[in-house]
């Protein structure tokens, strides 16, 4: 049963990574930038939900909604103030700006909410599920996380393939100039992508904190880096790739922790990424783009 428990925990952690990775991959697809501040949006989502439930006494679902709204607004504001002026700048300048935003969010959180860890109460009030005469216990957070990730994936796939806005997003990531000529407002489309990505980050933050209930200003950075790794593993720019990469990474991490040792788990996760990239340089589901001379 140990194996099954680990597998379920791995899929659950992987689902969180997948939700975060979606934000990375969509932003990369459309703006060709590595948004290193994405991990810190997760942390902001966690704090908003924490205070909405704790200080304001709101019911969990409303608190989550509030976190999503707050992070969506944050995403739009950050994009407008920090990234939009650099639309034509070299990618390294944008990368450093994103790191600046990441520092800014972390230190604002430190000033506003202090460095002491907050004990996050789970947003899922149901009891754990017990199977096989008590041999296998699955916490309700785990189930909700996996279901939420699956639902998000389905909705997002439908959104990008069926709706006008989604098609505009795909057009922009294919060729911004051509999209503009077809009458698509590129700037508002990019804002939209940041909004969706940040909203998803809020959900991921709430789920992550429900499973691992300590909240500090740097909570988001390591999951952020891991989710970024997951996005690259699956093939950056691809939505199913982010899902696959996230789940794989989560499962590998939990198994490494269980069978090899907690200390080396991160090293193994990153080693897997390197091996995959050496065999498939564009990630598992990424498109190989031939270079034209």
């Amino acid at each position: 049963m140990g194996f099954l428990t680990n597998l379920i925990n791995g899929i659950s952690l992987g689902s969180v990574y997948a939700i975060i990775a979606l934000g990375y991959t969509m932003v990369y697809g459309i703006a060709k930038m590595l948004n290193f501040a994405h991990g810190d949006v997760i942390m902001v989502g966690g704090y908003v939900c924490f205070f909405a439930m704790g200080s304001l006494g709101l019911p969990p679902l409303v608190a989550v909604l509030l976190a999503v709204i707050a992070c969506t607004c944050l995403g739009i504001v950050v994009e407008r103030l920090a990234y939009k002026p650099l639309r034509e700048a070299p990618s390294l300048a944008v990368l450093i700006t994103a790191i600046g935003v990441s520092y800014f969010l972390q230190n604002s959180a430190l000033l506003l909410w202090g460095a002491d860890p907050k004990a996050f109460a789970s947003v899922v009030p149901f009891p754990s599920l017990t199977l096989f005469d008590g041999q296998l216990t699955i916490s309700s957070v785990t189930i909700v996380t996996v279901l939420a990730a699956a639902a998000i994936m389905v909705v997002l796939t439908l959104f990008t393939t069926k709706t006008k806005m989604g098609k505009a997003m795909r057009a922009c990531s294919e060729d911004k100039g051509a999209a503009q000529l077809m009458g698509i407002n590129v700037n508002s489309t990019i804002s939209m992508v940041f909004a969706i990505g940040s909203g998803l980050a809020a959900i991921a933050g709430v789920l992550l904190c429900s499973a691992y209930p300590t909240l500090v200003p740097t909570t988001g950075s390591m999951p952020g880096i891991k989710a970024f790794t997951a996005a690259v593993l699956g093939g950056i720019g691809s939505i199913p790739g982010a899902a696959l990469g996230g789940v794989l990474l989560g499962v590998i991490e939990i198994f490494a922790k269980a069978y090899i040792g907690t200390q080396l788990a991160d090293a193994i996760v990153f080693a897997v990424l390197i091996v995959v990239l050496l065999i498939r340089p564009a990630g598992l589901l990424g498109k190989e783009i031939r270079e034209k001379v």
Partner: peptide, 20 residues
């Protein structure tokens, strides 16, 4: 405590001024 906050704002500002 405002040290790193100012550092980050300066960083973003310099990047925007030198690259916009």
């Amino acid at each position: 405590d405002y040290r790193m906050l100012i550092y980050s704002v300066v960083l973003i500002g310099v990047m925007i001024v030198t690259n916009n």
